[in-house]
Design a protein around this nucleic acid. Structure first.
Lengths: 342, 342
DNA sequence: ACAAATTTCTAAATCGAATTAGTTTTTAGC
DNA sequence: GCTAAAAACTAATTCGATTTAGAAATTTGT
């Protein structure tokens, strides 16, 4: 590893000051009255010595790193990985980079990651939090680094947030099922029930039932833990289908849908013959199955983009946003898995 | 944004030197002969003032950032997002973080990203390169920052590399197809044919044909561009199927398989009735389709883990690894899409 | 030719931590 | 009570860039 050239090296080799070199290389030579001749010499020498600015030093001095931290539960979940991609692209336009972290829905781990990002002096964070309240998260972010929540919001309505209108999506999807003749609609969700995303989807479901004069049935509301999801879904569904047939199953995210499809495959359960199916989150699989799957597609790219816009806004002038919470309407894809019951 | 407490603040408030505070907080108080009394006072005050070390300053001084750069073509591709997750987890054990970037198979963009990671002084890089030669990549990494290639290797066999044994996977998969009676086997690949991963898969395919005395047919070897992949696959397949029926299609990665399945869905092509199917990369979809898809699964987690081990090795003592190229054997999943031709 | 104005450039401080090469203080020995 | 040794602590430099405040050199005006 050759030692790198620094400003000082260039300055020394030309017998000028570091100040001058710094100004020239930052394109502020002219306005600072550096002669054209000198400017050219500096630029030439910088190239010659293969000068590469050290962003650490620069960031330390300037108090900004042009780096954003992104925390999600699992970067390999397609929902998040697509958001990350959108965030990456949006940030690139403003010359920001991205440090990504997965929490596995572990609040402790999330806390540690937030701290770590603070140490690294990121300029802001985008967080899909597993925490239950804003107080918890503020306890970690003591420095006041700006952050934007995605996917899940917290109790404080002034927290910048971008996500899907989960209530709306679930309401529409459930209404659609009901209109198609389904009555006993199972809702398959996750256990830490404090997540706003899942809560709102459940609310949408319940409201749709209510509006269509269907009484909710607690036995049709299933919450499985995050860990060992597949096994839990299998057991819960096995139990449910042995007790009596539901009309349809509404899975609240892509992982649950996958687990449920696995169950159907193993148990040879025919969709929509034996049970209807609808899912929150749309994945490739759904349009490729021979019986395509009805779903609500979240606008992941839009969520990523807007989160970035909001965050950069917060970084520039904190707290000045007009609209704190942005809820993007999802898109309903009606397919074959929820065909009309004859 | 409250101003942060620095070492100096703690030092001043206790009337001791920064040196002392630094030593104590780094756990080197005792060995440097700081009295227990003072040590406790420092630690207490640090807590009281909510001291958070500034990693920028630390990194600048120490010459290491504990940050790794990861470059892939698209972080939202499930193959890569799973590798990223594995890399993240493996790095976490050594207290490293991850900056991720997507290149979209664009060599220019990759060059810019490498430069940027250098500026940020990452301690090392893990790269799934789109470049064609080691010279190209070395031209960018002028600083000599250690890097490990994944998924695709380059001409220099001394470059640390971790990937799948693509030749082996393709050879086995093709042999399997041949043994099941398939003869006219289409291979669906991508156009920039310099990628070692795709080249090796093709080699494995050709060798399998040869070993089974089948003459390769150029019309069955299809290379589509990365951009507008889906459209190109559709057109190429439409043309191919109109000319005469192939026996089977071997897709060289998950994206091509998805595009091909889309085509079959639209054209109502029955698998394996009308054409057999096998795929490199295994995705959830394949085991959930009613006709499950035969595939070669890459050990993504293992690739991520080993890449990290190799990189940390390079960082500690460059060039000392026993084995430069690690090729991990993939796992063949024989399913229904490649059933025996009767 | 000399002051004033303009052009061109620079020394030194700063960001926050780590570290080298000490110095000061205390204790021990006799 | 004095010295040597041990214990406890610190000043100053460094990493590499930016910036403030100002100095030196040149040009202009009369």
């Amino acid at each position: 590893m050759k030692k790198k050239t620094s400003l000082a090296d260039i300055a020394q080799s030309l017998n000028v000051s570091k100040t001058l070199v710094s100004m020239v290389l930052n394109g502020r030579g002219e306005e600072n009255g550096i002669s054209k001749d000198t400017r050219e010499k500096v630029i030439a020498r910088a190239k010659e010595l293969n000068y590469q600015p050290n962003m650490l030093a620069r960031s330390l001095r300037l108090g900004k790193t042009n780096t954003i931290g992104l925390i999600v539960s699992d970067i390999s979940n397609p929902f998040f990985s697509k958001i990350i991609r959108a965030v990456e692209d949006a940030l690139a336009e403003y010359d920001y980079n991205l440090i990504v972290c997965s929490t596995d829905e572990d609040v402790e781990k999330e806390g540690r990651l937030i701290k770590m990002l603070e140490y690294k002096q990121v300029d802001g964070m985008i967080i899909s939090t597993s925490m239950a309240s804003e107080t918890d998260i503020r306890k970690k972010i003591r420095s006041g680094i700006p952050f934007v929540l995605i996917d899940r919001y917290l109790d404080n309505p002034d927290n910048p947030y971008v996500g899907t209108d989960n209530y709306l999506g679930a309401y529409r999807l459930t209404s659609h099922l009901i209109k198609n003749g389904y009555k006993k609609i199972v809702i398959l969700s996750h256990q830490p029930t404090h997540l706003s995303s899942l809560k709102d989807r459940k609310k949408g479901y319940l409201q749709a039932l209510k509006d269509h004069k269907i009484n909710p049935d607690d036995r049709l509301i299933i919450d499985v833990p995050f860990q060992n999801r597949d096994r839990h879904v299998f057991e819960a569904m096995e139990h449910l289908f042995s007790e009596g047939e539901p009309d349809a199953v509404f899975c609240l995210n892509n992982s649950l849908s996958l687990a449920f499809l696995d169950f159907c495959k193993q148990k040879n359960i025919n969709i929509p013959g034996r049970t209807g199916l609808a899912s929150f989150d749309d994945i490739d699989l759904f349009r490729l199955l021979p019986v395509t799957v009805t779903s609500v597609r979240q606008e992941v790219t839009e969520i990523g983009k807007q989160a970035v816009i909001k965050l950069l806004h917060e970084i520039r002038k904190p707290g000045s946003a007009e609209e704190k919470r942005v809820q993007i309407p999802p898109i309903l894809h009606i397919r074959e898995s929820s065909q009309k019951i004859s």
